[in-house]
Structure formats: C-alpha cells, structure tokens
Design a protein around this nucleic acid. Structure first.
Lengths: 122, 122, 122, 122
DNA sequence: GTGGTCTAGACCACA
DNA sequence: GTGGTCTAGACCACA
C-alpha cells in the first residue's frame, strides 16, 4: 500500500504523509478508519518508528488524521484532505503560471500541454 | 537585479540559479553576455562566494552558462534556457495533473483555475 | 449525558471527569446521588473499564465523589465541586493575565474580550 | 534566558517554544535577530539537539521563526508573535468563560478576579 | 498495545 | 558551523 522511494530527494516522512493523503482522497481510507499503528507500519516499511510518527504528526497538523493517545491514529475527514489537496494545487498552479510566462508560453498552449498529459497519463 | 528571500526554504544557490535563468529568458542577459564575477556577486548579495560558485556550476550543468578560464562566466544562449524551462514546466504539469486527478478535478476545471491565475496574477 | 470527543487531545478519563464535575455543578447530579457503575458506563461509552475507573478515582481525589465499597460511587456535594471549579478558574486567570501582559494588552481590553465572549457564547 | 522546569507536565520543547514567543513579544528578540543555534542551545540547556529542533520547528510553524538552512534560525516578526499570542488568549478566554458559567459566576465577578490578579501579580 | 517525549549519535546538504 | 533527516532505543501515560 505504501512504497518508499529512496532515490526520491524528498524525506521519507513526507512521502509517507503524501501517500496517506492520496489514500484518503481516493476513498481507500474512510472517515474514522484506523491507520496502521506507528510501530507496525515502521516494521512493515523497515523504517524507524520516529519517521512514521513524524509523518502522522504532519497529517494531524494538516487536519487529515487525529490521534487518540493509547488507541491509535484515525482519518479525520475526506473533505479536509480534499481542501488540503486543493490548496497544494493552487500553489502549484501559481508556480507553473509564473514559469510559463517566463517561457513566453500562452495560456492556451499551457492548457493544451496539460490536457495532453491528462490524456496520455496513467 | 537579484533579491534573495531568506524565508524561502530553498537553498540560496538555487534561488540565484533560478533568477539567472529568468534573466536570460526575459532577454536581460543576452547570448555571450558576461555574468558578474563570483566574488563581486558574493559581495553584492552578502553571501559566501561558495554559494555563487555553486549557483554558476548548476547553471553550467544546465547548459545556460559557460566558463572561460581566467575570464569568467558567460551566457550560452536563450534557447538552452528556454528548453530547460520547458522541461521544468513539463515536470510540474505531470505533478499537477496527478494531484488534480486525486482531488477528482476535471481537466476543464484545472484549466479554468490556471487561466484565472494567469489573468489575476502579476 | 456524556459525549466523548476522540479528536480532543486530552485523555478520555479527563474528559469524563470534567463532564461529571459539570453535571454536579449544574445540579443534574445531586448530593449522595449514585453515579453509574464502572462497568455500565464503560459499556455505554464503549471504553475500557479502566478508563472509567481512572475518571472516578480522579473525582474522588478531588473530593467530588466518594466510594462505598460494594455499593458504588456517589456525589459528595455541590460545594466541593464548586470549590474545585473556582481553583481551576483562578489558575486559568493567572495564565491568562500572564499572556495578556506579554501581548501588552490592558486589563480593560481583556475584560472587554471576556464580556464579548460571554455574551456571544452559547 | 531560558529556564526549564522538569516538574512542569508540559514537554520541554513546548516550554522552550513558549519562552521564545515571550522573548519576541517583550522585545528582547527583534525582527531578523538570530536565535541560538540548535547545538549551542542544546548544550546550554543540557538537552538533546532534537528537543531544540522540535521547539524551533514549532515556532517556525507558528510563523515566529524562519530557518535558513546552513545559517541558523531567525525571528520573523514581532507582529506574528503578537497575533499568535492573541489567538491563544482568545482560546483561553473561551475555556475560562465556560468554566465560570458552570460555577454560576457573573461576568462582573470574573472581571473583578481578573483585575485583582493583574494588580497583585508580578 | 498505543502514541508522546526524549536521549545519543550518525550522515547529509548548504553556507 | 548550521539545520534536516534518520536510526536505535528508553521510559512514560493512557486504554
């Protein structure tokens, strides 16, 4: 369910957090569903429990998970995850538009590239 | 001409490299134009010369600058910078599409947001 | 009568204890009234009996409940609960004043905010 | 400048973060001032560098510090600290009002207690 | 068993 | 030298 990419420059905890965000968004993890315990996931991924804890802490900060001490971590809400994702999308759009302008690209061309990736993508 | 943002989490050398890429793209720096010497730019920006060195090395790696030993660093040409920028744009589009799909956005909606940012932006 | 908030970071036993204190204060639980047995309340709230045990132990420590072996737990009296509440209020005032001073707030402003919350609150 | 209270139930990193927030608010630490390096403060307080890092990360999250990788941590802005403090004050007022209502206290009485603490306090 | 905090210590990128 | 990430492992409160 979670695959770590050690060649990725992003830290492990960030990859893990992003993956859970996706799993909540795609409906695999529903509201109030328990995510794996810090220790069991650490075992499964062969990483230190602290790394999982950091990923979960980040997701809690984003409002995607909530922690019940002594019980485990649970999914807050799909809507929160969706809002977070949209915020990220807005930020990425801003960067992309800035770069496209610099490359003297038209918005039409940019949308065309985008649609092409959408259709050709996985 | 170059403004560093110390609150930006990206390393200084990367901010500097990006800025030079933009300056080449927008035509301020033309083919074969000399960029400031490592020392003088380090002085001007109040940063360690190593930081400038690293930025220039990165730009050389991208083919945007070339070095003439004993003379300094010079702009290769605009086309190289444009190609590099387009590569970055392609990669960002890929990420953006992936995120938008996860958020169950349509390509139409994504293009709309993009156009809106384009028009509302600076 | 008792609603647990699993997203609250405070431990469950503390939420339960606080709720009983409120119920005594507002007169729902009168002097010498029996509170639910550890087992039945644990069933009702779907929590571990240890959690209820701990909540009752805490309330006994505060003098709000007393235990009759083999019979159950009972409310001491309203006055004890009120004194406890006032102690808590005094402590919170101390913290609040400390923070307000640091924020260079005047006592008038603080009282104004307090009255506004009082009137706008539930 | 920073004193840790090991009898305090709050974690060390939280005490450290709160202390820095106060130091920014009272003007001891001004905008863009450097705070001690993670390692030096860890030495000074005889705690693990990770504990300091966590405190600084929390302050960065609150917008009170910003990090320049390889250089150190710096104060963002006094205004940000003040806003944060006011948010905390608002939350504490809400709790306090809730408790005072339960104790059947009048707002006048509550304000009186508050003023008394303000004048009698340090 | 579960998360929270903390220590000790390593290795890395960046300045 | 400075922060960022990660490991290994301990001890605690809570359920």
């Amino acid at each position: 369910m979670i695959v770590l990419d050690y060649t990725d420059r992003r830290p492990l905890y960030e990859q893990i957090a992003e993956r859970f965000q996706s799993l909540v968004l795609c409906g695999v993890l529903e509201k109030d569903a328990a995510v794996p315990s810090v220790r069991s996931l650490a075992m499964e991924l062969s990483v230190n429990p602290n790394t999982i804890q950091r990923a979960y802490a980040e997701l809690e900060r984003r409002g995607i998970l909530y922690t019940v001490s002594g019980k485990g971590n649970f999914v807050s809400d799909v809507e929160t995850a969706r809002k977070r994702q949209e915020t990220e999308i807005t930020e990425e759009i801003r960067e992309l538009v800035k770069k496209a302008r610099e490359a003297k690209m038209t918005p039409e061309r940019l949308c065309e590239l985008l649609r092409r990736d959408w259709n050709g993508g996985q």
